[in-house]
Design a protein around this nucleic acid. Structure first.
Lengths: 247, 247
DNA sequence: CACAAAAAACTGGTCCTACCAGTTGGCAAA
DNA sequence: TTTGCCAACTGGTAGGACCAGTTTTTTGTG
């Protein structure tokens, strides 16, 4: 009694989930089109559609007419007030709680990435790093994020990917502006660059412990810098948290 | 601007769900055949099938080849609990990804608790610990959870509390059974107790590093024990995770 | 050259028809 | 009566045709 002849649609749903998990797909990432999946998995498009509907029912993906299907993220958009969002907005202190947790998780991500990154991961990390290094400080925010994301995904731990994504979207609600204010300082940017290089080298060389240490130091440094900024320029961060703030 | 042009399949899924709920259909009750529904609701059978797949994904119905679809006997409670979370359950590998993350965060929680716990925190931790130690192994699960929760909350980091709570509820979906199988082993329980004591003492004495180390070792030990169990008793865990498995 | 409009090339959404594959129940033959 | 087979259900799969949004490319201007 090996196993019951599982219906293909269910099996396909399961395989697509695996594609999402093993592929280290981040939330909001686009899933191959129905026709692509159909030909790639050698089943009819009907089956793919049924499988996708099941996954949608489970809350795994979201589908948009004409655009495609996307991996959903844990923390729903700000529209549905998540208890978290409400808790966090308005309490600057929580920002540092967030960074405290991020320090651990980014460290672990770097650690695991150093151990598990495959050729494709290393290529993506290298690309992100070189692009980021060459870019001007203004457009740096997204590239910085891309670099960190590449490392996180290279950890091949979907739980880590999703948790850090949640934390990130929480931070976006609060800090993005202040990071931008942080960046221009020449010395600060140079320190950040040095951190990034240290992380990059450790990961690509497979030095797990060094990578973990570097990533933790990086987050901690950002956190402490923000604390200083906050003390110096009271208004900036506080304004960001103002109820009406829009980013 | 009444409502967005909701896709027919989604609308049909909603209508069928209402047929089930408003119609007061009992669990195990057969719902009309796909062809019947199609003609009665004036849509193609494809749409019906996609809608039914979505309902299956939500756990509302179960479908059997040649027999029909039936209202799921599991309480279709308006869960609202974990949306994307369900992606993780059903993939054994993710369990260890989860534990991997938990190891870090429980460690950090213990570390922070050792630094920040106030008198009230210490009292709660002590109470939870003593109660747990005196309890019989059967009712241990909840007490164990209470103990860990007390420490996590003593970290005074709301982010940490929330994230670990999410992970915990994830694990409950998957492991509870196997942990129950794990618990009876006398030697295992004794080891666990020793871990708990080590964590307890470190936290209450304010030894942050020791607390962190102990908490990490604890989670890692649980994880490795489960791996062993999995190898020994292939069928138990594997069967639980089988795609077609119904629990 | 720059830029906006049009067109092609995507994406998912719906319908259809035919056929395969399990399940059930009734009817006929032993 | 009992056996066994054959419809007539049920869901499962395939693939084509077309509609309806989105994105990208091309093209026709200014």
């Amino acid at each position: 009694m090996a196993s019951k002849p599982l219906p293909i649609a269910k099996a396909i749903a399961y395989r697509i989930e695996r594609l999402i998990l093993d592929g280290g797909m981040a939330p909001e990432e686009k899933i191959p089109s129905e026709r692509q999946l159909a030909s790639r998995l050698n089943v009819s498009r009907s089956i793919i559609r049924e499988a996708l509907h099941e996954l949608h029912g489970r809350g795994v993906i979201d589908t948009h007419h004409g655009r495609g299907s996307f991996v959903s993220h844990i923390v729903p958009e700000p529209d549905k007030e998540s208890p978290l969002i409400r808790l966090f907005s308005g309490h600057p202190r929580t920002l540092y709680d967030l960074l405290e947790v991020r320090e651990q998780l980014e460290g672990q991500a770097a650690y695991l990435a150093a151990q598990r990154a495959n050729a494709r991961d290393l290529h993506r990390i290298t690309t992100a790093f070189t692009v980021m290094e060459a870019a001007d400080p203004l457009t740096n925010a997204k590239l910085d994020h891309a670099f960190h994301l590449a490392i996180i995904e290279a950890s091949h731990n979907p739980v880590l990917v999703h948790v850090l994504d949640s934390l990130k979207s929480l931070m976006l609600l609060t800090v993005q502006a202040s990071v931008a204010n942080l960046s221009p300082r020449e010395d600060f940017k140079r320190q950040i660059d040095q951190h990034h290089r240290r992380i990059y080298q450790s990961v690509t060389r497979g030095q797990a412990n060094a990578a973990q240490k570097a990533a933790r130091a990086h987050v901690r440094h950002v956190s402490e810098s923000m604390k200083q900024i906050e003390q110096q320029e009271h208004s900036i961060i506080r304004r960001t948290f103002e109820p009406g703030a829009h980013l």
